[in-house]
């Protein structure tokens, strides 16, 4: 298949991401060979998909106001997602028909990617869950997607090292237990840039792309406000993605 375009972004305001995502869906829909992957983090926010409700959020309005957290209703599948720093938000904008995928296969591939990334961190007990991927009964990655013109958008979030305490008060699916993180399950700190690398590599492999290319985050005039990774991080990521051939998962997640 074609080359996967990867946009490695830093902290992106949710509304800005939605605008940019809409543009990318439009562009991929009108293309014969494009597929795009957006990776970023969001400031604290709760997004609610079509299967979620306010009752899943056990913060009252005053508490949300004090924390400066907003609730954003979105047109994806799945329920509530608590976005916090330390959590990667992964937006594959993929032409499903061109990739030969129906919805269940696409969702299964997404879960596979998350499970494999988690396994690379030496967490071997990750398994598919209806809401995403779970480790020992606790969600570590959550899936919720939308499809327009057979082009996917939204996607999945993966907890790398966020503060887990607030997850006790937001029902993100996956049963009664709150979400966990790679860092908690691994009991060691982790370099989030290396998690990004593994996500890109597993996406390429699982969805059958020949290659990937890292984009600097600007493809059109209206996206110029998208913040990029800081120069140093971006350069480091480029170098490591271009130069490394990984042979053992332990090497990916050295601290």
């Amino acid at each position: 298949m074609s080359t996967l375009e990867v946009y490695l972004l830093d902290h992106v305001p949710f509304e800005q991401l939605l605008t940019w995502q809409r543009r990318m869906v439009y562009e991929v829909s009108g293309s014969t060979d494009r597929a795009v992957l957006l990776l970023c983090e969001h400031e604290p926010l709760i997004s609610v998909g079509r299967e979620g409700s306010r009752a899943d959020i056990r913060f009252d309005a005053d508490e949300l106001r004090q924390r400066n957290w907003s609730i954003r209703w979105v047109n994806r599948g799945g329920g509530c997602t608590l976005h916090l720093p330390g959590q990667l938000a992964i937006y594959p904008i993929f032409p499903l028909r061109r990739l030969g995928l129906n919805l269940p296969t696409y969702l299964s591939h997404l879960r596979d990617v998350m499970r494999n990334v988690v396994a690379d961190a030496n967490i071997r007990s990750a398994s598919h869950d209806p809401s995403g991927v779970a480790v020992n009964g606790r969600l570590i990655a959550q899936v919720g997607v939308a499809v327009r013109n057979w082009v996917s958008y939204f996607g999945t979030v993966l907890n790398v090292n966020p503060d887990l305490e607030p997850f006790r008060r937001v029902d993100c699916g996956g049963g009664a237990s709150p979400m966990t993180s790679i860092e908690r399950e691994r009991r060691l700190s982790i370099n989030p840039q290396l998690v990004r690398q593994r996500i890109v590599e597993h996406m390429r492999e699982r969805f059958g792309f020949d290659d990937y290319v890292l984009r600097p985050g600007r493809t059109s005039d209206d996206s110029r406000n998208i913040p990029l990774l800081s120069r140093s991080v971006h350069r480091r990521t480029f170098e490591s993605l271009g130069a490394l051939i990984w042979s053992r998962s332990q090497e990916f997640f050295g601290t």
């Binding site: 599948g77 919805l103 919720g144």
Partner: peptide
């Protein structure tokens, strides 16, 4: 709406 996904029909 299906499980974990919305699909827009045009």
């Amino acid at each position: 709406l299906t499980e974990r996904a919305t699909f827009e029909i045009v």
